[in-house]
Design a protein around this nucleic acid. Structure first.
Length: 183
DNA sequence: AAGGGAGACAACCGCTTCATG
DNA sequence: GCATGAAGCGGTTGTCTCCCT
C-alpha cells in the first residue's frame, strides 16, 4: 500500500516510508523527543521534510496508535461524534484514544459516509434524506414542516466557509481554549 | 482465471491558525 | 498592529487488497 517513492528537486524523499526510515524516526524521537519538526529529519538522518515526518509519526508510529479494523462500537462513536462536531477529525480523535484523525477521516470517507447514504441518512445532518423536490411549490405542500426555509438557510449556512470557521472557533471555546478570541 | 468495483490505508496538498519578532 | 514562517488540520489522491461476477 502507500505511494511510489520519488525525490523532489531539492533531494527531499517523497512517497511511501520504508522500515528503515520508520526505525530511524522512532529511534530519534525515543531518544531526543519531538522538538522542532524542521530540523528533526536532518538530525534523524532522514531525507524527508518535517511535515512528512510529523504525519508519519502521528498517524502510524506514535505509541498507542491502534491499527486494523474499526469495531462496531468505534464506528458508532465516530458517527455520534461526527453528528456533534462535524468534520473536525482532530477533535473526534481526541475522544477516541488510539485512533488518529487521519484514520478516522479515512474510515468515514471510505466507509461510514457511504453506509449512511445507503441507509437513506444524510451524512451532514444525520437525518433521513428528504427529497428536495418536495420544496417546490407545486408539489406536496402538506408533507410537514421539516424542510422549512429556516432549515434550508441553516444547511446553506453550514456549507458556507465563513460559517464553518466560526463553528471552529466556537469549538475551541467549548474545549476551554480562548486563545482564538484573545488575538 | 480475469477483470472490475469497492474498501482500506498511506501520504500529499493547500489552507488556516498561531507564535514570534 | 503587522509580517512571516512553522505547525496543525481537513480534503483529496494514489495504490494495494479483497471480493464478486
Amino acid at each position: 500500500m502507500g505511494r511510489a517513492t520519488w525525490f523532489d528537486a531539492d533531494g527531499t524523499k517523497r512517497g511511501g516510508w520504508t522500515d528503515e526510515e520508520d526505525q530511524k524516526l522512532v529511534a530519534y524521537i525515543n531518544e531526543y523527543g519531538i522538538g522542532d519538526w524542521r530540523f528533526l529529519p536532518c538530525k534523524a538522518g532522514l531525507q524527508r521534510c518535517g511535515k512528512s515526518c510529523r504525519l508519519r509519526w502521528l498517524n502510524y508510529l506514535r505509541p498507542g496508535v491502534k491499527k486494523g479494523k474499526f469495531t462496531l462500537e468505534e464506528e458508532e462513536a465516530i458517527i455520534n461524534f461526527q453528528s456533534i462536531l462535524g468534520n473536525r477529525w482532530a477533535a473526534i480523535a481526541q475522544q477516541m484514544p488510539g485512533r488518529s484523525d487521519n484514520d478516522i477521516k479515512n474510515h468515514w470517507n471510505s466507509c461510514l459516509k457511504k453506509r449512511l447514504e445507503r441507509n437513506g441518512i444524510d451524512q451532514m445532518t444525520h437525518q433521513p434524506i428528504i427529497n428536495l423536490a418536495i420544496k417546490t411549490p407545486s408539489f406536496n405542500t402538506d408533507c410537514g414542516n421539516s424542510s422549512s426555509s429556516t432549515d434550508q438557510e441553516h444547511l446553506v449556512g453550514s456549507e458556507n466557509p465563513k460559517h464553518y470557521w466560526s463553528r471552529r472557533r466556537i469549538w475551541r471555546v467549548e474545549q476551554g481554549s480562548w486563545e482564538g478570541f484573545s488575538r
